[in-house]
Design a protein around this nucleic acid. Structure first.
Lengths: 216, 216
DNA sequence: TTAAATATACCGAGTATTCGGTATATACCT
DNA sequence: AGGTATATACCGAATACTCGGTATATTTAA
């Protein structure tokens, strides 16, 4: 199964960062065990590619335009259950890992993982294993805001509030956020209201400005 | 100078995403014109490497731990003026581009740039040129940056549109803007609609982000 | 045990925004 | 004259947001 001369593991790569995708393609191709058979720049495109031919493994980035990696992963897991999905992300949170695992993703790893580890994970996943990085509780709260602990304490925002603020600033509507986080729209609105009051800003515009001005 | 058999362009890569750095190393090494002579995972480490040996080109990511790419670039530009710096980032704003240019960075490009373009940029930079990426393909923009007076022409926004965009970003609602400018709310909405279409952004959030990111 | 923090959920009523379209008037240029 | 750009104005229908409130459940700490 993993003998290079007989049957390499086939892979597809979905990432809007072409340099990354090209680079990944290159280092994987240097390994005799792997064969990259497709690349896509967004969730929609990878769905289209998989409609035409399946790979053993799909390496997919979470942050992509048009159709993001999380939603795409869920669809792919449902539509193409033989394709084992490895999700790459700059961010790693327990909640996210749990979500991905539940939807059928086989591995979730950070983009700062080294190549040798990735090769091993790919082989493990191809053999039916899963890989979800273990995190210590005090470092699980990672998101795009700079120096998260201090940021949070300074402005008294909860983890959930930060998460929702991030999505708001990424132009998600409350109903989209509700769908994405599997909570009620009422809950989203309550978090928004709480943030507006805590931060003493004017509505959504104030929240967006706050998010941008305090983002790394 | 760029003849592979005689004198390849030497490069160093600074990026905390090892997969990315490894991938980039791999695709650059496939080109006979380039030779990667060092990799670092943070700003401090690249400073240390350059203290021992210089490269022609440094490719550096903005987002790095310990010492980030922007600060590191400024130091490197000062300490090692012969090293030509190419900054990679997920984000591209006019303000940031201006800052980087002023500190001596030779090129600033997005991570979703394709490999062939990167190769060309590296060669151009090695020959003494600079490269600052166009913001939107359909908008005519030369490589030099216009000052505030040309902001309007650059993005094809009318004076009135700019005026309204400014007020939106100051958290004024459409009805408040209509009152302030003594026009109908319908007119305000029409201007908003026109801007959203011109700038190809998502709703008010997109407008606000645009306004903030392009504010002097 | 109680209290606090957090997350979740809901309601009503009102305002705000979006987006498909429609249109006219003015100024300027070809 | 016709065409273009800009500013103004309007409509309908739908969705989105706001803000006053209500509430429960869970976890943790005092």
């Amino acid at each position: 199964m993993n003998d290079a001369t007989i049957n390499p593991i086939t892979l597809m790569i979905a990432d809007d960062h072409q340099l990354f995708a090209d680079g990944l393609h290159s280092i994987l191709s240097e390994q005799g065990d792997f064969k990259v058979i497709g690349k896509a720049a967004n969730g929609k495109e990878i769905l289209h590619l998989l409609n035409h031919s399946l790979s053993d493994i799909l390496i997919i980035d979470l942050n992509m335009p048009v159709l993001d990696g999380e939603i795409a992963s869920e669809k792919i897991s449902r539509l193409f259950p033989s394709v084992k999905i490895i999700v790459l992300s700059m961010y790693y949170t327990t909640n996210l890992a749990i979500r991905l695992k539940e939807m059928g993703v086989k591995a979730f790893i950070k983009k700062d993982t080294d190549a040798q580890s990735l090769f091993k994970i790919i082989k493990d996943v191809a053999q039916g294993n899963t890989y979800f990085q273990k995190l210590k509780p005090e470092i699980q709260e990672v998101n795009s805001f700079d120096d998260d602990d201090n940021f949070q304490k300074k402005h008294n925002l909860t983890y959930r509030e930060l998460e929702i603020l991030q999505l708001i600033s990424e132009t998600y509507s409350s109903s989209q956020i509700a769908d994405k986080l599997c909570i009620s729209i009422y809950t989203v609105d309550t978090h928004r209201k709480n943030m507006i009051q805590k931060l003493n800003v004017n509505g959504k515009t104030g929240l967006i400005k706050f998010a941008i001005e305090n983002k790394r």
